[in-house]
Design a binder for these strands. Sequence first.
DNA 1: CAAAGTAGTTATCGACTGATAACATGTCAA
DNA 2: TTGACATGTTATCAGTCGATAACTACTTTG
Lengths: 185, 185
Amino acid sequence: MARTRMTAAERGEQLVRAAVRAFATTGYAGTSTDDVARLAGVSQPYVIRLFGSKQRLFIAAIDHASARIEQAFRDAAAERADLKSLGTAYERLLAERELLAVLLHGFAASSEPEIGERVRECFGRIYAEVRRLTGADPEQARDFLSTGMLLTVLASMRVLGPDAVPPQPWMSELAAAVKADDTCL
Amino acid sequence: MARTRMTAAERGEQLVRAAVRAFATTGYAGTSTDDVARLAGVSQPYVIRLFGSKQRLFIAAIDHASARIEQAFRDAAAERADLKSLGTAYERLLAERELLAVLLHGFAASSEPEIGERVRECFGRIYAEVRRLTGADPEQARDFLSTGMLLTVLASMRVLGPDAVPPQPWMSELAAAVKADDTCL
DNA sequence: CAAAGTAGTTATCGACTGATAACATGTCAA
DNA sequence: TTGACATGTTATCAGTCGATAACTACTTTG
C-alpha cells in the first residue's frame, strides 16, 4: 500500500479533514485515533507522530472548523453585510453538518482544560466576527448565535439536516418555526 | 465496607443521580461505569448488574434529567404561566448545571441510535410542555429553546455558570446581552 | 550513485473498560 | 433457627486505546 506519498504538511491537512469528519460524528472521547487514521488511509502511530497526541489532533480539527466557519461568514458579508446574509451562510454550513458538529463536540469536551480554552477562544472569535461584519449589537448577535446553537443541536440529534430521522409531528412544527424566522436568520 | 444496605430501587436512584453528575462533566464515551460506581460508593460490576449496560445507565440519567426539567417548568408555570416564569426556572436549572449538561451530552451522543431516539423524545416532550404550559406559539417556543441552548452551551464551556472561567471581554459582553433579554427569558 | 533526510510502517506495550461469573453477606418469613 | 431471597463483592477477561520504538522505503541532492 501507501500508494501515494505526500509531504507532511499535505498529509497533516488531509488528517485534519478526516479528524473533523470522525470527531463530528462520535465526539472527542468516542473517536479513536485509529478511526481517523483509517479515514485518511494511514497507520495510527503516524497520526500520533504528526500531531503529538490525540488532544492536539482534536484541537487542530476544532481550529480548522472554526476557521472555515469564520471564512464562510466573511464571504457572506462580502456579498451582503447583514445578519440575514450570515444566516443563509450558517444554513449552508449546517447542511455540510461536519463543521458545526465538531465545534459542538468541542463545547461538550470543555471539561478537558486545554480543549475548553481553545473552544472558548474560537467561540469568542466567531461572536466578535459576527458583530464586526454586520455591525450587530450584543443582543442581536446573541439572538443570532442562540438560533444557531438550536439549529446545531437539532442537527446533532438528527431532527434537522441531511441525516435526519423520519420526523415526529413536533419536529415538523419546530422546523417550520425555525424556517419562519426572518428577523435575524 | 458496604456500610449501608439499600433496596435495589433506592440504590438505583442513587446511581442515577451519580450518573447524571458523572456524565454531565465527561460525557457518555468519556465516563466509565467505574466513575459512576465510585461516586455512589458501590462496585462497578454491581452498576452493570442493576442497569444491564452502560448505555441503559446513560439513558436512565437522561430520562431523570429530562423529567426533573419538565417538573421545574410545571412548578414555575403553577406560579405564573408565561415564558418569563419558565425562563427564571431555566436559569435556576442552569445554576445546578448538571441536568442541562447531561442533556447536552445526550444530544452530542445521538450517533448512538438508542440514545438519539431517547434524546429526541425528551426534547420533544420539553418543547411540547413549554407550549402547553405557556400557550406559546411555535415561534415563541423556538426562541425560548434557542436561548436555552445558547445558555446551556455557554455553561458547558464554562463561560457562564458556577464553574465559569475568568471572563474575557467578549464573555462579559455576551453575558450582559443574555441578561438584558426579557422578551422571553 | 551514495548518503542524508523525509514519509511511512509494523510490532508492541501498559492502562483502561465494559461485562461475566462465582462467591459472600445481610435480611426476613415461617 | 433456618433457609431462601436480595444485596452486594472480588476475581477475571477479552477487547480497545494512545503512545513509543524500531525498522523500511522513497526522494532529493551533491
